[in-house]
Design a protein around this nucleic acid. Sequence first.
DNA 1: CCACTAACGCAACGATCACTGCGAGGTTTC
DNA 2: GAAACCTCGCAGTGATCGTTGCGTTAGTGG
Lengths: 188, 188
Amino acid sequence: MPAQSSPPRTDTRPGGRSARVRAAVHQAVKELLTDEAGDALTIPVIAARAGVHATTVYRRWGSVGELLADVATSRFSGDVVVPDTGSLREDLERYAYDLAKDLSDPDTLALVRAIVGTGGEGAGVCRMERQRQLEAIIEREQARGNRVPTVDRAVEALLAPLYYRAVFTDQALSPEWARGLVSHLLPE
Amino acid sequence: MPAQSSPPRTDTRPGGRSARVRAAVHQAVKELLTDEAGDALTIPVIAARAGVHATTVYRRWGSVGELLADVATSRFSGDVVVPDTGSLREDLERYAYDLAKDLSDPDTLALVRAIVGTGGEGAGVCRMERQRQLEAIIEREQARGNRVPTVDRAVEALLAPLYYRAVFTDQALSPEWARGLVSHLLPE
DNA sequence: CCACTAACGCAACGATCACTGCGAGGTTTC
DNA sequence: GAAACCTCGCAGTGATCGTTGCGTTAGTGG
């Protein structure tokens, strides 16, 4: 176990030097994830691509796994706004559509696959944020006094097919198909 | 692109020398996948664990990715027998139960995650065999003249939640939960 | 304006990796 | 039984990786 490797220590103000190399390294990781076969994703290569020295990357992140986890965290945080249309069905349809569009991005997909390959510790990062958004939608509907499916059911019916199709198959995540998932979760 | 690297060339008879080192290397990969963090999965390490020389592994497989694909192929082929109880519901329940038990094995799970991480070309291997079995169950029921869900629906309702929960979460794949998936696919 | 802290660049090091001729041992075929 | 073929072990090579000590530079607070 690599201790806990102090997270991005201090200094992450949007103009600072640290923030700049951080952005450059993140960008390099995303680019390499789409280009290369995936096994060539190593610290010296990332550092060269980012225009920084490998030493810096080793000191700040320590390993490719932690770096990927960091990239995933900043990638999957507060990116999809939770829909709020007043209708559960419509909220879920927009949510499924947004998630499908997000997972259709090759960069995002490659990132998810790489994260899964690092051992699964960071795999939760790729889904917890989405699951929280789903919970928020359902709890809001429940607060309106309506019957709602359980969160687990919603995860099985929406999140699971979206992630499964994206990660394990080559099929496209069409908007119609994503909406169809909602109709199976909420039978008329 | 590494050409196509001739697949396990010749000589795979169950007693031959090639078959023996092949089995040893496969076993070593499975063991290392469970032990290590995953990033230490390299050819020399695998070879040392298997008791063979790295040269042999390089020549026969060429890269870790191809080796993983080979392991996955022999792991996911003809292992789960397709249930045939005469009842679609019962067939699917047994199928879901078997798959849940299979994915609960840490070795199998680590293999699936590693395969996904190599880029996704070999990810299909982990699911195609299962999907064919699902198709066989459904087509058999259809041949009996009964109404059946589409294969895509069955994949979304069974395969996707099973793989999603196994790969992305740490929750256990309990038999009751697996059976519950079938009851959502086949209402009534 | 000046000292202080922290992040980065630089150079060097051992270790490991991926790969390549060459020879030995086993298996098949005539 | 002998020759041809394939597979594996062995030793060595260049390249890359992960890591560390030290000087430099950029931001921070008095």
